[in-house]
Simulated scan of single mutants.
Amino acid sequence: MAETIKGRGSRQYLPGRFEVTTAEALDDGWAAPAEAESGPDPSRPRTELREETARSIVTRNDSPDVGFSQSVNPYRGCEHGCSYCFARPSHAYLNLSPGLDFETRIFAKTNAPELLRREFARAGYRPSPIALGINTDAYQPAERRLQLTRRLIEVMLECRHPFSLITKNALVERDIDLLQPLAEQRLVQVHFSVTTLDPHLSARLEPRAAAPHARLRAMHRLHEAGIPVGVMFAPAIPWVNDHELEAVLEAARAAGAGSAGYVLLRLPHEVAPLFRDWLQAHLPDRADRVMAAVRQMRGGKDYEAAFGARMRGRGQYADLLAQRFALAHRRFGYADVPPAPLDGSRFVPPRPASPQGQLF
């Protein structure tokens, strides 16, 4: 059985579902000690950041389960390494592992700001709120150096385009200077994903994300700056963090959150075996109980992808969780401060480049 890897949510290179061949390392005893020590330690994989030139940057959907029709993701893969991340299977399209590759091989779309400006300049473009970083976190560690998300927000501010973002990284505080004027024009909402208030559980579930107290502190600082903030209790995992739903909503409300939501654990494709492996590594005493509860809410399967059920589940446990959320939502006053809708009427297309500069 593979050992856990410090700072990583997965401990294996699970092949993607499109692979036709798999490779397995085998120590035949012939390597000299010096040779074995000369290369990188396979038990401590390093993060590789790769730059790529994207062909498009705005993704559109018509799903009734989400409150947006457009999204922008500046990164593929996520170093936060959340063991439960529903986006892990996307690395299979790159012939990479949804396991360790997803959190160690990060692709940065370095031309994302230019593509977004070009999209806004199209003659037929009609503004609709954009969800920024909805697939993988737009404020993951690489953002500190690359600043792709900051440059995207600069385009939003320049064009007065409405958007929302969700993150589990306190790095979002860096961009208060951009978010504040956007908030004054009702053009932005910031949501924080808070899975648990227990730093020890968080370090195992989402090893390179900001600690829970750091997310709440960032939420408070944005709120103090006049930026609308909300909390997403996600994912709710039976027998792991589900008992914290009320505590998370209460702590976030005290930090200034004006809206709240929750999402049930989702285990599409390769996420299911990866999360089962995580349970065996970190919570073996309750692994079977957790998965039994998951299957009870998913029609006897690890996952159900049907619209209307994939975010909330079905059955008694799912109904009870929904009732608990509704009660906590009212008790802590979220219903008293509904967030103002984002304003798309302020949109100003970017000016096309002119050989005469600003003369005309």
Rank of each mutant, 00 (worst) to 15 (best):
K109E: 10
R215D: 03
W30Y: 07
N61V: 11
L245M: 15
G256S: 04
L132I: 04
Q185V: 03
V66S: 07
T59R: 09
Q358E: 12
P228K: 06
H269T: 06
R204W: 07
V58A: 06
G299N: 10
R50L: 15
A254F: 07
R330W: 05
P162V: 12
F68W: 15
Q356F: 14
L279K: 02
A251N: 08
A260F: 02
A306H: 12
P238I: 05
N111H: 08
A255G: 01
T149C: 11
V172P: 08
T167N: 08
M291D: 10
F360H: 12
K6T: 14
D137N: 09
F86P: 01
L320D: 14
R88Y: 06
C159A: 14
A326C: 05
D62R: 14
L279V: 12
A112W: 03
N111K: 06
F107V: 06
R289E: 15
A32Y: 05
T136V: 11
Q280A: 15
Y262D: 01
R351M: 12
G258D: 05
L171G: 05
F360L: 13
W239K: 08
G261S: 14
A31D: 14
M1T: 11
D343S: 03
D288F: 03
V20E: 14
L201H: 05
I57C: 08
C78I: 11
I166W: 01
A54C: 11
H80R: 01
P273Y: 09
V229N: 00
R55K: 13
L26E: 14
R174E: 15
A335Q: 12
Y84S: 04
Q189N: 08
A131C: 13
E304W: 09
R117A: 14
L321K: 01
L132V: 06
H91L: 15
G357Y: 10
Q296I: 00
A260S: 13
H329Q: 12
E184C: 01
A257C: 04
S90P: 00
G39A: 14
R204A: 13
H223Y: 09
T22I: 13
A225G: 06
E250S: 10
A225L: 07
R314P: 00
E48P: 00
T53I: 14
D343T: 04
A2G: 02
G67F: 06
E184P: 02
H200D: 15
I134R: 02
A293S: 15
E48Y: 07
R346H: 11
V172D: 09
A209H: 02
A318M: 05
T4A: 12
